[in-house]
């Protein structure tokens, strides 16, 4: 396992042009190990920039990104090693598919890392299991698949590199609820089974509430709040200040509380809400 740390990291886009923009301002952040961390924030809050700094695709304008205490930009030649340890799935990753078959495309990453045929086969099979890519799809051309299927193949392609930290930028953007569920569910079982660190970037509070353990809220290029899911959603005011919406179920619970029903307003998944209401119901009987 590995610890990812940001130390005073700033990032500037388009330096020295009229379009100069500071995307990140002095970020200090440590990502806890072996958890699903949800990175949320309004559009333009710097989430995607943060993601691309994690494996050296972008270099910080100032500050350091540390992996297990070592600066990832210290040596140029080391970046390949960093990318093997921190896997990054970009937004709309289905546009990166290029191979003749799905199987070959998933194997592209591990092959670049110099893994053996056997290892690749095992890693591919495992990644397919978590992402829900079926056996019969493996021999198809990735361009024959539907959008959601392509997305899963692309995620499998990074997962098969067996990184210690998996970072996904909006992995479910533009998918229907069923597709979202499958992708996030798969990622959660991947995390629980392999005990790896998964960093999810999203602006969907519902998804984050359901699947993340810890939440990092970004606002205007700064870290606005870091806490566990439970604590974050108890603080409705904080979330509004970040320009985000509370999950619908949490809003319902707050309304119930205001109407005099003694339920906890920190509930953020439908299952918990059911439990909470049932307890209240029984208690009142």
């Amino acid at each position: 396992m590995a610890v990812l740390q940001f130390e005073n990291v700033s990032y500037l886009y388009g330096a020295d042009t009229p379009f100069e923009k500071e995307a990140l301002k002095k970020i200090n952040l440590t990502f806890p190990e072996g958890k699903i961390i949800g990175l949320i924030g309004h559009t333009g809050s710097g989430k995607s920039t943060l993601a691309q700094l994690m494996n050296g695709i972008l270099r910080p304008t100032a500050g350091r990104v540390l992996l297990d205490g070592e600066d990832i930009a210290a040596e140029k030649g080391k970046l390949a090693g960093i990318r093997a340890r921190v896997g990054l799935v970009f937004q709309y990753p289905e546009y990166q598919l290029f191979e003749e078959t799905v199987e070959k495309d998933i194997a592209f990453g591990p092959k670049n890392l110099g893994k053996s045929e056997e290892e690749i086969r095992a890693l591919t099979a495992e990644a397919c299991r978590f992402t829900g890519v079926t056996e019969d799809q493996l021999s198809k051309s990735p361009f024959e698949l539907s959008g959601g299927q392509k997305r899963r193949v692309a995620i499998a392609g990074v997962m098969a590199m067996d990184p210690e930290i998996l970072v996904l930028d909006e992995p479910a953007a533009g998918l229907d609820p069923g597709g979202r569920e499958e992708i996030f569910g798969g990622l959660r079982s991947y995390q629980r089974e392999k005990k790896k660190t998964v960093i999810l970037i999203s602006h969907s509070m519902e998804d984050m509430a359901r699947y993340a353990d810890e939440i990092v809220i970004m606002k205007n290029g700064e870290v606005f709040a870091v806490d566990t899911v439970g604590h974050i959603f108890e603080n409705a005011e904080l979330i509004r200040q970040a320009g985000l919406e509370l999950p619908q179920i949490t809003r319902l619970m707050i309304l119930l509380q205001q109407k005099g029903v003694p339920v906890s307003p920190g509930v953020h998944t439908v299952e918990d809400a059911v439990m909470e209401i049932c307890t209240q119901w029984k208690g009142g009987m």
């Binding site: 990054l88 970009f90 546009y95 990166q96 592209f108 990453g109 670049n112 392609g157």
Partner: peptide, 16 residues
């Protein structure tokens, strides 16, 4: 922009 995105995505997959 698209080219840059794809290059980055493939770099993230260990392309050299």
């Amino acid at each position: 922009e698209e080219t840059e995105k794809i290059i980055n995505a493939q770099k993230a997959r260990g392309a050299d």
